[in-house]
């Protein structure tokens, strides 16, 4: 990846993060997980997936399923950047005049399927990948899961099916931000060694820094990692990435900030001093 491309992606990711922060008010959003997967989503839509505003109905397009649906602000922000969603619509978040709410739904252009109940879309993506293969089409099917989401047993059932069907057109991306909703994953339901688990379930696995575009480029260029096997990219990320005031804070998962806090967080994103946050921390799911 050349320097110019890298700078382009980094600048876009900053703009998407700003959009996410601006959605974390007047009702709020799941800001922590949205910021952890931002670079992944920006990378995938600009460099990996054959998806654009003109081919959203094309059966030959690639697919991205966001299984940990609560990070949908990262999708809204990215879609606004690449022309799939009108930028003005981001201001409609949580209002009756639009369908931009806390989880994905198909009234929003570019969203392939609704999500929100964890552990659903890995099996849905498996079905889509299976049909693409049965039709002899070359689509790639990507599904982003959370790491806490992997607690749900349905994910592992889908892995067994995908391996049995030898779906090497399926790419499972784990946003490994190391947090459940309220606590660190390793303190509650330890997932490591996560790569070994996926390998034991029949996948090819690579681990990358989910904020390093060059590293992601190297990994995704090598898909499928093993012929005849689904690929798993475990992307190590930081919850709340880009805004140190909320990075890795268990209590800043779902946030509903005041207007002043939003402006302070945006300034912090752009390199100014850390925001002082006084709004109530919310621990819900």
């Amino acid at each position: 990846m050349n320097h110019e491309t890298m700078q382009h992606l980094q600048a876009m990711a900053i703009r998407v993060r700003e959009s996410i922060i601006r959605m974390a008010t007047n009702g709020g959003c799941f800001i922590g997980a949205s910021l952890s997967c931002t670079d992944l989503v920006v990378y995938l839509y600009t460099r990996f997936l054959n998806v654009n505003k003109d081919n959203l109905e094309d059966p030959q397009r690639d697919y991205l399923f966001l299984s940990k649906g609560h990070d949908v602000p990262a999708l809204y922000g990215t879609f606004a950047e690449i022309g799939i969603l009108e930028k003005d619509r981001l201001r409609n978040h949580l209002t009756a005049r639009d369908d931009l709410y806390l989880h994905p739904n198909r009234n929003v252009p570019g969203i392939e399927f609704h999500a929100g109940s964890l552990g659903h879309l890995l099996s849905v993506a498996t079905g889509v990948a299976l049909d693409c293969r049965l039709r002899g089409q070359g689509n790639r099917v990507v599904v982003i899961t959370g790491d806490g989401e992997l607690d749900e047993g349905s994910n592992w059932e889908a892995c067994l099916i995908a391996a049995a069907q030898k779906l090497d057109n399926l790419v499972i991306v784990v946003d490994r931000n190391a947090f459940q909703a309220n606590v660190e994953t390793e303190a509650l339901i330890p997932l490591e060694p996560l790569g070994d688990k996926f390998e034991a379930f029949g996948a090819g696995v690579r681990r990358v820094d989910g904020h390093d575009f060059a590293g992601m480029d190297a990994a995704f260029s090598a898909v499928p990692f093993c012929g005849g096997k689904p690929s798993v990219v475990i992307a190590d990320t930081v919850r709340g990435r880009g805004v140190p005031s909320i990075e890795r804070r268990a209590d800043r998962w779902f946030c509903d900030f005041t207007a002043d806090e939003v402006e302070a967080l945006v300034r912090e994103l752009h390199g100014e001093a850390g925001a002082e946050l006084t709004s109530e921390t919310l621990i819900v799911r």
């Binding site: 649906g69 709410y101 806390l102 989880h103 609704h114 929100g116 109940s117 819900v284």
Partner: peptide, 14 residues
């Protein structure tokens, strides 16, 4: 928890 309208803006999954 969050039964009925208490799920607010979470959407139909919730």
């Amino acid at each position: 928890t969050l039964a009925g309208f208490l799920s607010e803006a979470n959407g139909p999954t919730h």
